[in-house]
């Protein structure tokens, strides 16, 4: 099931308070075309890990390699969907995405950019709203634009920072389905942060469970990847039938047990 290693993270740590790293010894691999989710409580450093992968933050120690080349600084190879969608409110949907497309392919002509933009806006089903301003869109639509923008630059790795956290359950479900379809069609490699266990089970091929840093009797213990679990459910799973699949409940219980019992006290 595991494909060739695409991204390798080695012994990453990030220190804000000396002697008390938020996390350390964080190591994991992501295969080409793999969808990996990371789950953990607030404050465990998930977003920091993602920012380091994106090149927006620097690790205190450790390395990230993508295709055997070390990651340093942000790059168009890694597209990010931000938690707060981060659309530029002074640009229309079209211009927001065109801004990204022009950054990726500065040599493209106007017509080329237009076609590319329209293709990716259509992909998230927003063709009717392409000339609207972000302020005129609902939260779900904004996040779709954020996803379209990240996909439009055709990054080799897509990083999603809890993209559906601020959406209502119905909208979240619809966009999860859309994201799943697009990822399956494009074979995109994805690293995603989530709080939602079912979201992780639906989308991820593999789930990283991350524990918080905490004080124990033996002294301070930094956060780390406590467990890595492969998703045993078939790749054809859908949101509607997910909970009827065999093995769903044991898998879900395992993750929930971790979050309830061990994520903090590990």
């Amino acid at each position: 099931m595991r494909m060739s290693t695409f991204l390798r993270v080695e012994r990453l740590s990030r220190v804000y308070v000396p002697g008390k790293p938020v996390f350390d010894e964080v190591s994991f691999d992501i295969g080409r075309g793999e969808f990996v989710c990371i789950i953990g409580h607030s404050g465990c450093g998930k977003t920091t890990v993602l920012n380091i992968l994106a090149g927006l933050d620097a690790a205190s120690s450790g390395y990230v390699f993508m295709d055997n080349r070390e990651v340093s600084g942000p790059s168009l190879d890694r597209g990010v969907v931000f938690q707060s969608h981060a659309l530029m409110p002074w640009f229309s949907v079209r211009k927001n995405i065109a801004f990204a497309v022009r950054s990726r392919w500065p040599e493209w002509g106007r017509e080329e950019v237009r076609q590319h933009v329209e293709r990716f806006v259509a992909m998230v089903g927003l063709s009717h709203a392409i000339d609207r301003m972000p302020a005129e869109l609902s939260g779900g639509m904004k996040q779709r634009v954020g996803i379209a923008r990240a996909f439009a630059i055709q990054p080799r790795l897509l990083l999603l920072d809890e993209p559906f956290g601020a959406l209502d359950a119905l909208t979240r479900g619809t966009i999860q389905d859309e994201l799943m379809t697009i990822v399956r069609e494009t074979g995109q490699t994805v690293f995603m942060i989530t709080h939602d266990v079912d979201e992780a089970i639906l989308l991820a091929d593999r789930i990283l469970l991350m524990s918080n840093g905490n004080e124990t009797a033996a002294g301070y213990r930094a956060g780390r990847i406590a467990e890595v679990v492969d998703n045993p459910l078939p790749g054809t799973r859908t949101r509607a039938t997910l909970h009827h699949l065999e093995g769903y409940y044991p898998f879900r219980n395992r993750i929930v047990d971790f979050l309830v019992a061990r994520a903090r006290a590990a």
Binding site: G55, P74, R78, F82, A86, M88, F99, S103, I153
Partner: peptide, 17 residues
């Protein structure tokens, strides 16, 4: 806002743009 600057950074936008 930091997030807009981060978008620009991840898109490797030139200083002038």
């Amino acid at each position: 806002k930091r997030e807009w600057l981060n978008v620009a950074r991840t898109l490797e936008v030139s200083a002038m743009r």
